[in-house]
Write a protein that binds this DNA or RNA. Sequence first.
DNA 1: ATGGTTGAAAGTCAA
Length: 255
Amino acid sequence: MKIASWNVNSLKVRLPHLGQWLADAQPDIVALQETKLEDAKFPVDELAAAGYQAVYSGQKTYNGVAILAREPPADVVTDIPGLDDPQRRILAATIGPLRVVDLYVVNGKAVGDEKYAYKLEWMARVREFLAREHERHPNLVVLGDFNICPDDRDVYDPVAWGEDILCSPPEREALKAITELGLHDSFRLFESEPGHYSWWDYRQAAFRRNMGLRIDLILIGEALKPAAKAAGIDREPRRWERPSDHTPVTLELDI
DNA sequence: ATGGTTGAAAGTCAA
């Protein structure tokens, strides 16, 4: 089974890219972020024609998450219980043997900004939610755009980035508090070297110069670790015309 | 250094 996560930065613009990539990569489950679409405008029919059922939680202009799957998603959750948040950033569903949680983590803008405080608060609430999900579902997959570089290997220039947004110690601690629930960064089960990124800024020819960050992650519960066979980052769609600034990340599970 | 580029939407805001 192949699982993927992709921040498409507008599903309206990127629907052709997604269609091409689904045909090329043949994933079984895909978590999308930044769909930027109201639910009424979600391209259900186009994706069904490609062989995928979809669940989605979107809004106009900003945010928006979706899960595509070959098997029907069930037990869908679109909000963190007790957190009244209009921003559409989380989506959970059960697909076959897996519980899948798609996250579009708050960017935070800059350390000290009010959005940064919201990011840390949101991460703490997500951690509580994931702790409960993991108790109920050992086969838990948590994936998405985390907007946090786990460590300096995931940053093209760690000295320049320093402790700025996406790399600050409180953000990394918030991510660590989630991985310490027994949720492993699957990419690092297979690759320990630096220089592998999932996002490159649109500016300054960052992709061509490989000035990127690895902020798109697929975390798996301890119970799934033996099933993990390969993890990857598919840079090909980042080379296409009018690309998203993120590229798909993948995980092969023998399940 | 707060630059430049893209998306949504129509002047800016968010990333």
